[in-house]
Design a protein around this nucleic acid. Structure first.
Lengths: 259, 259
DNA sequence: GCTTGACCTTGACGCTGCGTCAACCCTCCA
DNA sequence: TGGAGGGTTGACGCAGCGTCAAGGTCAAGC
């Protein structure tokens, strides 16, 4: 007859594990000796090892009991199911590794390389860090909402940065938000350029980001984010409304031009 | 300003998860409105998404806070560590899949194919199912204790089954344990053969399972297992002692032959 | 006979990342 | 004004044990 620690040692598990198996009814409680100690027969070692074989194979403890009693076909089906779950879990971890590799590859926010390129391009044309940070946050939101489509959109966004009007717009915005003064004339100028660009896009039938913009991620959120970062953005929004446009991240023509 | 459900929806997580992040201090609690509701700024969406990016990459929540504040090299080191853990975990699951494949391959106890072959061989030479089951349980214990070495030992074990004396021994044992009578003459015969085989092995310098037998897995356990399966094994053990041998699973010559 | 150390007992909390009630309050809309 | 659909805190549950806590027991040496 064996004590619990001997049993555990033979089977290569901890005493605590054995007691746990008793608790959940996986391994039957043996008789106790006079002092209340559990006393095990050698056969218990075999039972315990069989349990561990299944547990090591990834079978949840809650299923092991049934599996040890099951007939061959039931057993095989259960095994297949467990294997499917293992495959899924492995796939999930592999996906995590890819994510982590992206993070390690310099970019701490897992933005697509195209977005990184876009932000770098902004810096190249003289856009201030503050404005770039605002753009970055916006693209973080966009990437979270449309992780796949963002990469498709970037080439045209990058191409647009060749437009001298757009470059001028970004530079003005940089100057405004780099300074602490409320330079309203600059804001008006920015609004004019923005309205002009919107007009061009509208007449050429170009609809910035496609139909996705309709309902799903309110572009209002992006605007609100910008306003929060710098309240002067609110003034810019107002100026745009005066010019017949609603929003900023996504411009929409107002139904009725305000009086 | 956003409610908690809007925040959660934008970031693609559950409300419960957001509250959990508050609880563990990962996401700062926002101001409450007059009725005690949490009200979030748009920037909170970005914070939350950043948290999720790391979490999805397999970073434990407890580390995400520090990682978001860490400098580049600390961050990189942490990433590397996480990746190592992911690799380990994947390896563990792959190992489980191998185990499971073995189980699916017909053998429900994960015995090495060599052991299965040995047991089949026993059946072929006419050994009864009961005795084979006893052998199987013994090899389950052996495999648990020496998972790698068992496979090396089997070829010689299988070769030994060509010995007519051994075949005869196994057949006698089968007859004994298949019948319900206490046929002592048969037991004596078995003991004689066993002693003779032990003598041969001893004189040829063959030490059954090598030095492993010394201390680690008491072969007494195997003997006790057999006695438990059928008490008549005890008589066999006694007979062997009379013949100067101790044990059964592993025979050892007694220092002093009993009087 | 006494101490000491190793081993046994039950009971309970901790870990991870939330899911899922429960019981109650707030807001908005028909 | 009533009901649906938000929000709030608090608590338990999940898997598989690890790890105290607070004792009782056993074998050995003095």
């Amino acid at each position: 007859m064996l004590t619990i620690s001997q049993l555990a040692a033979y089977a290569g598990v901890t005493v605590r594990a054995v007691r746990h198996y008793h608790q959940i009814g996986l391994l039957p409680e043996p008789e106790r000796d006079a002092s209340g100690y559990r006393r095990y027969s050698p056969a218990a070692v075999v039972s315990l090892i069989r349990i561990r074989i299944l547990a090591n194979a990834g079978v949840p403890l809650s299923q092991i009991g049934q599996m040890l009693e099951a007939d061959a076909s039931t057993f095989a089906a259960a095994i297949e199911e467990i294997d499917r779950q293992l495959v899924d879990e492995i796939a999930r971890l592999e996906a995590s590794r890819k994510q982590i590799a992206q993070l390690a590859a310099g970019d701490r926010l897992a933005l697509a390389p195209e977005v990184i390129a876009y932000l770098d391009r902004l810096r190249d044309i003289g856009v201030s860090e503050r404005v770039v940070a605002g753009e970055r946050d916006s693209w973080i939101l966009m990437s979270a909402r449309w992780p796949d489509r963002v990469r498709e959109w970037m080439p045209s966004k990058i191409a647009q940065l060749d437009d001298p009007q757009l470059i001028r717009l970004y530079r003005i915005l940089s100057e405004i938000f780099e300074s602490d003064t409320g330079d309203d004339a600059r804001l008006v100028e920015a609004a004019d350029i923005l309205a002009s660009l919107a007009e061009q896009a509208y007449s050429s039938g170009e609809i910035d980001l496609g139909a996705v913009a309709q309902d799903d991620l309110p572009f209002d959120l992006l605007d609100a984010l910008a306003v929060e970062a710098d309240p002067r953005v609110q003034r810019l929004l107002d100026l745009m409304r005066e010019r017949g446009w609603d929003g900023l991240a996504r411009l929409e023509r107002l139904a009725e031009p305000p009086t």
